[in-house]
Nucleic acid binder design. Structure first.
Length: 209
DNA sequence: CAATAGATCATCT
DNA sequence: GATGATCTATTGC
């Protein structure tokens, strides 16, 4: 957050500023190979009012040819959304406890997607701290796939929802801040663990460990 | 600080 | 019945 330029006790929610300075990420951005979409989403802003966070870490999942992807087993009730149109949210429940957010990529019928792994909190921090009682620093609010869904209030009710119409949306700055991008193998998987499909901002403290 | 165990359930074999 | 795109608390150095 910014240093105390104002002495007012009521903190201004910067969500309106973010909305004014950004533009909605459109369908053409999502309807591309998952790797390209992953790169394109780095630095964009994930918004679910009253919260917003800048995407600083993502992973690409390549569909049926990718052993680590849910779609490796083909079309099932769970993976149905992945086979649907791009630009939609795929939210699933894992480890009996956590929800994870993916963005569906590639044309309809091709189940590539991008896992959102970490956010730099930008707006609604007070709400995030309420939801994430264990967090003592901003960097602990959303530095992991389960943490960020918790902090943002993203649940399975948003599975299959459109990122174009909302309420969950992704927006980009016309002139994004420059940060050097690192590439590494994906985290937390057993098969396909050697493929370099994780992208993150090298020096950003909000990236997961 | 690093390592580890426990929580807890949808999905698939 | 086992596994898993995780997080947290706790233990041990």
């Amino acid at each position: 957050m910014e240093a105390g330029s104002f002495a007012t006790a009521t903190p201004q929610n910067p969500l309106n500023e973010i909305l004014a300075e950004t533009e909605l990420v459109g369908l053409n951005t999502y309807r591309r190979p998952a790797i390209e979409v992953a790169r394109a989403l780095l630095g964009t802003v994930l918004i679910l009012p009253p919260c917003a966070g800048r995407i600083v870490e993502v992973e690409a999942y390549l569909g049926e040819k990718d052993e680590a992807a849910h779609a490796f087993r083909g079309l099932t009730p769970r993976t149905k959304v992945l086979y649907g149109p791009p630009g939609h949210a795929y939210v699933y429940f894992i480890y009996g406890m956590h929800d994870c957010l993916n963005v569906v990529a590639e044309p309809t019928g091709s189940p590539g997607c991008v896992l959102i792994r970490a956010l730099e909190p930008l707006a609604g921090l007070d709400v995030m701290y309420t939801r994430r009682a264990a967090a003592r620093r901003d960097r602990q609010l959303a530095s992991g796939p389960g943490k960020l869904t918790r902090a943002m209030g993203i649940g399975r009710e948003l599975n299959g929802s459109s990122l174009i119409s909302g309420p969950l949306t992704i927006r980009r700055y016309p002139n994004p801040k420059l940060e050097s991008i690192m590439i590494s193998p994906r985290i937390g998987i057993t098969r396909g663990a050697d493929w370099p499909l994780r992208f993150y901002f090298e020096a950003n403290p909000h990236v997961s460990g």
